[in-house]
Structures are given as structure tokens and as C-alpha cells.
Amino acid sequence: MEYTQLGRTGLKVSRIVLGTMNFGPHTDEASSHALMDAALDAGVNFFDTANTYGRDPRGRTETIIGDWLARGGGRRDKVVLATKVYGGMGGPGAREWPNHDRLSALNIRRAVDASLQRLRTDHIDLYQFHHVDRNTPFEEIWQAIDVLVAQGKVLYAGSSNFPGYKIAQANEAAARHGRLGLVSEQCIYNLFERRAEMEVLPAAREYGLGVIPWSPLHGGLLGGVLRKEAQGERRARGTSALALEDPAVRTRIGAYEDLLARHGLEPGEVALAWLLTRPGVTGPIAGPRTAEQLDSALRAAALTIPEEVLTELETLFPGPGPSPEAFAW
């Protein structure tokens, strides 16, 4: 496993990030623990979760991770642990009290203590703001983070789903008071969805944030979905099924799968490996449900995509181009 610095920090993290959203809803606790053991054995040291993951109830995923960490064996010391704050914990249909969600100083304080309890640890290495809170000034957010850093509960702060201008606002507010500011941005970014290249990635590079792409397979669209349909393995669902309703998208995905088949490459592994070639990307989030999916992600980390394939991928999935040239003269 290769390691890199997380943005401008001295923190070293694996080029593949273990995403845990499936732990609980789709992967039971024993299997989730086995996946974390296997990931750690393979050198993956960067684990990502969120306080709202788990569905029934929300927070279940953090509890599964906490139970795994509590088994000892140096697990906590080896892992760079990242979680998130923003969403309410009540779930669909539940009553949410005021101040029980978003990024007020009060909710940040409440949420971090609850996450620490579920994770069964005394600190979170990377505490990420899951979404933009337009009603809370960054001065208040950074004041709350200052307290958590002083208490030893949080080491670094990151963002998720922030547009480029909010990354700039957050770090300019931090700089005015001599704070470190955001060190990472977790955004949707993959071969099919490249709009982050216009503003988010340039802002992240300018301010020294490591980029952690989520949905690297775009909901399975880039994971060999047409081949699996043809073989009767699994039909497309969710975002990939909606995308494939467009004949032009189906044609493009078919060309993508045909290209990689000619070169003996697996679509899902190429989609992950392509992200590792992109400037500023720390590592994509692989969210396995099974051991086979984890093994595929690990192979992707070691894969070198031939130049001719990279060129053809650029033709199939052209990026928007740099801003402002992408939308102006």
C-alpha cells in the first residue's frame, strides 16, 4: 500500500480510503469487522464514516467501528479515523429538536461527544463538516473546533460537499485567526462526474486540501454494470439505473466496458485507479460490502493504467476543462 500526505499536513494516509457506509445497513457487524481487519492487514490506515451512517438506527456504523476498535491489538493507533457532523440523528419521520443538527457550536459539541462514545475512542483524527451550513458563520464553527482541539478530541478538520467558494471562505476565516483551517475536502468525483475539476479541485489545491472522492464508481455505473446485467449477476439500481435510462449514457458505458475488456482490465478497478492519477487526489473512498469488493479496491491501488487507455478514457469521459475557460472566453 502506498501512502501520501493528507493535503498540506504531515499526516500520512493510505491511497485507498475504507468507506464504511455499508456497515450495518448492508454488511453485518461480524462481516464489517472482518473487512476492517483485512483492510488494516493490507495497509489501509484511513477509515471514513459519519455520525448519521447506519439507518436503523443512525449511528449504528460508528458503533460497529467502535466495537472493532475496542478489540485492541493496536487498532486505534494504526488507524486514521475520520467521521462527520451535520445531519440530525433522528432519521426519517423522527422529530428533530432545534440545535440537534447542522454546524452550530452547540451541535458540534453535542455531536462530537456522541461520536466519541459510539466509536469508543478519546479522539477523532479528521472531523468533517458533512455539508455547508449557510446559517452558521465560519467564525463560530472554528471557535467550536478550537475548543475540541484544545481538549484533544479532534486533531484536524475537513469539509464534505463544499463548493470551491466555501472552501475559500472557510480557510480565509481560519487564516484571519491563525488557525490551520480545512485540510481535506470529500466530494463526488469520478470519470462520469467531473464537475469538481472546475472549482472544487482548484480551490483544494490552492488552499492545500487533500481531495477524498466519494462515489468513485458513480453508484456502480462504472463498475461493469452492463456486463453484470448481461450475465444475470445484478441489475443496475439507484443512480446508475436512472443514468442508464438515457440511451446516450448506455452507449458510452458500453464503450467504456468494451475498451477495458479489450485490455483485460476490470471496470471498477480502473475507475478507482484513474482517480489516483488525478492531481490533488489523496485517495478515493472504497465502500465494500464484501471481501471480494475490498480485494478489488486493493488491486486498484496497485494498478497502472496504460497510457493509451488513459487517452481513450479522456475521449469517452471528457472533463469540463479549467475555469473560467470552461464557461468563458
Rank of each mutant, 00 (worst) to 15 (best):
W97P: 06
W97N: 10
W97Q: 13
N99S: 02
R102G: 03
R102W: 10
S104Y: 02
S104R: 04
L106E: 14
L106I: 13
N107T: 02
N107W: 05
I108V: 11
R109P: 00
R109K: 11
R110M: 14
R110D: 08
V112W: 06
V112Q: 01
A114L: 14
A114C: 06
L116K: 05
Q117G: 05
R120L: 00
T121I: 01
D122P: 00
I124H: 08
I124K: 06
D125V: 13
D125S: 12
L126Q: 02
Y127T: 04
Y127Q: 02
Q128Y: 01
Q128A: 04
H131S: 11
H131F: 15
H131D: 09
R134E: 14
R134H: 13
R134W: 11
R134T: 12
N135C: 05
N135L: 15
T136I: 15
T136W: 12
T136K: 04
T136P: 12
P137I: 09
P137R: 04
F138S: 04
E139T: 15
E140C: 08
I141Q: 15
W142H: 13
W142G: 06
I145V: 15
V147P: 02
V149P: 03
Q151P: 01
G152S: 03
V154S: 05
Y156G: 06
A157C: 15
A157S: 15
G158Q: 10
G158R: 09
G158E: 06
S159M: 03
S159F: 00
S159R: 05
N161E: 14
G164K: 08
I167K: 09
A168R: 13
Q169F: 08
Q169D: 15
A170Q: 06
E172W: 15
A173F: 09
A174N: 06
A175P: 02
R176H: 07
R176F: 00
G181I: 11
L182P: 01
L182C: 00
V183S: 00
S184H: 09
E185K: 01
E185D: 14
I188N: 09
I188Q: 14
I188G: 12
N190M: 04
L191M: 13
E193S: 13
R195W: 07
A196D: 03
A196K: 08
A196L: 09
A203Q: 10
R205I: 15
E206P: 02
Y207R: 04
G208V: 08
L209F: 03
G210R: 08
V211Q: 02
V211R: 04
V211A: 12
V211I: 14
I212F: 02
W214Y: 15
S215A: 14
L217G: 02
L217H: 12
H218Q: 13
H218R: 12
L221F: 08
L221S: 07
L221V: 09
G223Q: 05
R227W: 07
R227N: 07
K228D: 07
E229A: 12
A230L: 07
A230I: 00
G232M: 10
E233S: 01
R235N: 10
R235Q: 13
R235E: 10
A236M: 08
T239A: 09
A241Y: 05
L242I: 06
L242H: 10
